[in-house]
Amino acid sequence: MTDLSHLARPGTEFTVRVTPKAARDRITVEDGQIRVYVTVVPEDGKANRAVQAALAKAMGIAKSRLTLLRGETSRDKTFRVEP
C-alpha cells in the first residue's frame, strides 16, 4: 500500500479520484494525483466508507479523523484531516 503519512497533519485537505468495483483495493499516486481503487459497489455510501478506511490506513491515522468534504456521489472527492 502507498504511504501517505505526509498528509496526516490536521487541517490538510486533499483530493482523490475513486474507482469503485475494481479488481482489488489499492492506492496509487500518478502525476501527483491520488487514485483509490476499491472493490465495493458505489451504493449507500459503501464505496465512500471503503475509500475512507483505505486512506486512513495508508496515512496511519484513525478513519474517524478523515472527513469527506466534497464529492459524496462523484468520483473526485475532497477529504480533510481532523485533529
Rank of each mutant, 00 (worst) to 15 (best):
M1T: 12
T2F: 07
T2L: 11
H6D: 07
L7T: 01
L7K: 02
L7S: 03
R9P: 00
R9H: 11
P10Q: 07
T12L: 03
T12K: 12
T12C: 03
F14I: 11
F14H: 05
V16K: 01
R17H: 09
T19P: 00
P20I: 01
K21H: 05
K21M: 06
A22F: 04
A23D: 13
A23I: 12
A23Y: 04
D25T: 15
R26Q: 12
I27C: 04
V29S: 06
D31C: 03
G32I: 10
Q33P: 01
Y37E: 13
V38H: 04
T39Q: 14
V40S: 13
V40D: 03
V41L: 12
P42H: 04
P42I: 04
P42G: 03
E43K: 14
D44K: 15
G45K: 03
K46G: 02
A47C: 08
N48S: 11
N48A: 12
N48I: 07
V51W: 10
A54R: 14
A56V: 14
A58Y: 10
A58Q: 08
M59S: 05
M59W: 02
I61H: 02
I61T: 13
I61S: 02
A62H: 11
K63D: 14
S64Q: 14
S64D: 13
R65L: 13
L66H: 01
T67A: 10
L68I: 03
L68E: 02
L69H: 10
R70V: 10
E72C: 00
T73Y: 13
T73M: 09
T73R: 15
S74N: 15
R75L: 13
R75W: 04
D76V: 15
F79V: 05
R80L: 09
V81P: 08
